[in-house]
Computed example of a mutant assay.
Amino acid sequence: MEFIGAFYLTSTIKGNIRWAAPELFEIPDDDEGDEMAVSLSTECDIYSFGSIALQVLTCKVPYYNVKKDVIVLGQVIRGKKPVPPKESQIAPLHWEFIQRCWLPRASRPSVREIVSFVAYEREALVSKETIIRDFTSQIYDKLSSPVTTGSFGIVYRCTIESSERKTEVAVKVFKVDPGRTIDKLKTAMLRELKVWLRLKHSTIVPLLGTAQVEPPLLALISQWMTSGTLYEYLKEQPIITTPSARIKLAKGIAEGLSYLHSENVIHGDLHPGNVLIDSSGNPCLTDFGLATVAEDPDLQWTTTIAGGDFNPRWRAPESDIYSFGSVMFFVRPFVSL
């Protein structure tokens, strides 16, 4: 045991002092025992989170310039906080938030504030780093017969070759419709592209990039899903007859919908044709042409944009949940509406 001023270093101190909150080393005035009375609280974890965040962003432990922990303890007790290395490139906003975690207990951010801050910064970083790959040269003159035709576009199956491998992709080409102006079609195309770029999840068909097929409209390039739509899968796979197999499909669709709603995205056109099945039998949601992003006024669905192009058998005017119920009716038992 080592004596430091009025404090003892004993085994009652839990954790490592370089990350620990200073209140863990306080001794209450009414302490009558020989052991230190440690003042634990959720705010202690917030302080430690700030120290861990500093280490993650700078690749240096807190108090990196102090070798002996006993000296670190003295600095913690005196209220001296860690500092980032001079050569670090930590963003001022991040450094400011870390320092908030080291404020007196009552002034520290809550866990909810931390989660919101990290989520916002992650989304901003992803948005900055998102690069839309151009596949024009790789699919030029390779589109033959369309696989399917929808309200807004025609989907083709195409093979993209690289030095490493061949990849099958789906190419959605927006239709030039005499009933819609090019400006309206371009607005619809850009809306779907912006919504799709926001979505990164195992239950969402991956968007790979774009291509110039029918200028000025871009074609959207996505991963080809080998088992087709949910409708085709249930029709052509008689083995999918057990309740557990159908519940697995329903669960996957529900997880996809849950992810969309967690991102404030309303699909707006959920039906078996917009649920694709991968090679492992997992459902993935696709086709975000009628999707709405709740908090983004530029990505709101309107009848002017959509032109009423949705399937009335599956869609309620206000709810993805209604559509999910219709899809579940279709999945179990397999009955075509």
Rank of each mutant, 00 (worst) to 15 (best):
L234V: 07
S51I: 09
F288G: 02
P22N: 05
K175E: 11
V83T: 13
R191P: 01
A106C: 08
S39D: 09
T148D: 03
I71R: 11
M328E: 05
Q212D: 11
P109A: 09
W301R: 09
H94V: 15
D183N: 12
P146W: 01
S137M: 05
S110W: 03
F330W: 06
K200T: 14
V265C: 02
T58K: 10
K128F: 03
L217E: 06
D134I: 05
L143E: 07
I17M: 09
K67R: 15
P243C: 01
T42W: 07
E96G: 10
S202E: 15
E295P: 13
V118A: 02
S336P: 04
C44Y: 06
L230K: 12
A91E: 15
G33M: 03
T136S: 05
F49Q: 07
L218K: 04
L299F: 04
T148G: 11
T203N: 14
S244W: 07
I27A: 05
L143V: 05
S323H: 06
V331C: 06
L285F: 07
L234I: 05
T229A: 12
P272F: 08
F117H: 07
S258K: 15
I239P: 12
I160L: 08
Q223S: 14
F3C: 11
D278N: 10
E35M: 13
D269A: 04
K80Y: 12
I253G: 03
V171H: 03
F334Y: 11
E232T: 12
L290I: 00
E121C: 07
I52E: 08
K166F: 14
S319A: 07
S258Q: 15
L9V: 10
K200C: 14
F97Q: 10
I132G: 00
D320I: 03
R180Y: 07
E23K: 02
S323V: 03
L40D: 12
V265R: 01
T159G: 09
S39I: 09
A37L: 13
R315P: 00
C44P: 00
A20H: 10
V118D: 04
F334D: 00
K194A: 10
K194Q: 06
K194C: 10
S258E: 15
P272K: 00
L199D: 02
F288C: 08
S163R: 14
T203E: 13
L290T: 04
P92K: 06
I46K: 05
K142S: 04
T292Y: 07
D45L: 01
D177C: 02
A316L: 09
L218N: 06
K248R: 12
E32T: 13
R100L: 11
N311I: 05
E168V: 14
I114L: 08
L234C: 04
A91Y: 12
S258C: 14
